[in-house]
């Protein structure tokens, strides 16, 4: 079987994503099987990974499934956790113009951090090739993620060692993301506000009821501090 050069280029640029998604998905899948207490974890691993394609969310789903978290809270948390996705599309509106609706829908649905980064960077010579490249890349990354989570969930049903403490993978994931975000100076004050709001909410409400109050506190703080925080950023851009 021979693939067109566009498809081949998409496959090659998807390789690093494959490593990441298979491994990270596998960890989330193991956790789902070992810690959520649901039956048929492989089925739910496949379903959740196929529909939302979102790393941090996949780990939160384990906790939500175990505690049967109220859906309103799930919706609000998903919104905060994934609000960055609402920014991604802004730079792809032009690229995804004038294509069949179902292709466009799929490209939007499959827009993860990694897929976005590669799609923004792609430099195919024609619009047709661009779309083909993006569709191939999106579908491959989507498949890697589903494969990782599902195989992890299967493996997690029969781990050869004690899984006590494996829940730390989720904590570690969030710490890694936070560490990387804090490399950029402009993220440090927002992260500090978020962390401080969360500590206040934790001390008052305890871990199981803290997230909604924490989000209310931080959004209030951001609205109040906007003249300061936003101005600071503009000054930086103008430098």
């Amino acid at each position: 079987m021979r693939f067109s050069p566009v498809v081949r280029r998409a496959f090659i640029s998807s390789l690093p994503v494959m490593m990441g998604y298979l491994a990270m998905g596998f960890a989330a899948g193991v956790l789902l099987a070992a810690h959520s207490g649901i039956s048929m974890p492989a089925v739910w691993g496949a379903t959740t990974s196929a529909t939302s394609i979102s790393g941090a969310l996949q780990f939160m789903i384990v906790d939500w499934a175990r505690m049967q978290t109220p859906l309103m809270q799930v919706a609000l948390l998903t919104l905060c956790l994934n609000i960055r996705y609402a920014m991604y599309g802004l730079s792809l509106i032009g690229k995804f113009k004038n294509i069949t609706w179902w292709k466009k829908l799929y490209l939007i649905w499959s827009l993860t951090d990694e897929t976005y980064a590669l799609e923004v960077a792609e430099k195919e010579s024609s619009h047709n090739d661009s779309i083909r490249y993006c569709l191939t890349l999106a579908a491959l990354n989507h498949l890697y993620w589903i494969a990782g989570v599902t195989s992890g969930a299967v493996a997690g049903m029969a781990l050869p060692f004690s899984d006590k403490g494996i829940d730390f993978a989720m904590t570690a994931l969030f710490i890694v993301i936070l560490t990387d975000q804090c490399r950029e100076a402009q993220n440090r004050i927002p992260a500090a506000i978020g962390g401080f709001a969360a500590i206040i909410a934790f001390l008052i409400f305890g871990s199981q009821n803290m997230l909604i109050p924490a989000m209310i506190i931080m959004i209030t703080a951001f609205v109040v501090a906007r003249p300061k925080l936003d101005a600071k950023r503009e000054a930086k851009v103008n430098e």
């Binding site: 941090a56 804090c182 978020g194 989000m215 931080m218």
Partner: peptide, 12 residues
């Protein structure tokens, strides 16, 4: 909100 939400989840 992105860095703030992640910091919140670390605290959680």
């Amino acid at each position: 909100l992105s860095p703030a939400a992640i910091a919140m989840l670390v605290v959680y």
